[in-house]
Design a protein around this nucleic acid. Structure first.
Lengths: 122, 122
DNA sequence: ATAGATGCAAAGGGTTTGCACTTGA
DNA sequence: TCAAGTGCAAACCCTTTGCATCTAT
């Protein structure tokens, strides 16, 4: 049974307000504005709980801490701007990934990451 | 000016002998068999030097430590077996990634990761 | 009342760095 | 010779955990 604490309310709000994946530190900053003395352990535990219950999904970019976003976005991939570092959601996917598989391999999932310049930075 | 120490010789050998991406710990184990008292700092510094000089490229899988492989393999992607955890090189690529881009975005690079079962584990 | 949640601080895992010592060019 | 490279340990960053306290139910 989950409890509805003011800490988790603030953490949930950070994610619903954001339109992009958030990392634990960003969540601590955002939610910390509304909850005095919010601890990082609380943020980590809340995120873990939200992922476990399926409300959040991890967005793991190579070489940096995991970020998280709402799971109701459906299948999509991400774009990371090399100038400003922001991560954007992409719509759509590509076909033909199976043709990359060696013989005997079974494909279960995939991840596509695009890098470049975003609208603003281009 | 780079020096040809026995430590770096052993570390280079670990990469040339391996036909897969290696992480720092694996390198420490492999090269450590030939160099007594090899320190992890040495491995990290050597890898960093090899990447800087372009001999190695990082292979960063979400959620785990970076691995490294020879840069002369050309453009390719990777497959990670969910059972045994091994990482395999894939040949080929896919087209049509540009169509995922929002308007105004500029595509510079991309990464594709496939997950599933390898030949042995399937 | 009481089990879940919190905050703090300590502990972990992986990576980097400071520093004195070693060694290749 | 003498700067690059090494080994050790301490420092760092991010994340997890132990534990006493707090609080929603």
């Amino acid at each position: 049974m989950q409890r509805d604490t003011k800490q988790r309310q603030a953490i949930r709000k950070a994610f619903t307000d954001a339109d992009r994946p958030l990392g634990p530190t960003e969540v601590l900053d955002l939610a910390g504005e509304h909850v005095d003395g919010l601890g990082q352990a609380t943020v980590y535990r809340a995120i873990k709980a939200f992922v476990d219950e399926g409300w959040l999904v991890p967005v793991e970019l190579p070489g940096e801490p995991a970020r998280y976003e709402l799971s109701d976005k459906g299948h999509h991939h991400h774009f990371r701007c090399r100038t400003c570092g922001s991560v954007f959601d992409l719509v759509g996917c590509v076909k033909g990934l199976e043709k990359l598989l060696p013989k005997g391999f079974k494909l279960e999932d995939h991840e596509i990451l695009l890098y470049g310049l975003c609208d603003n930075c281009a």
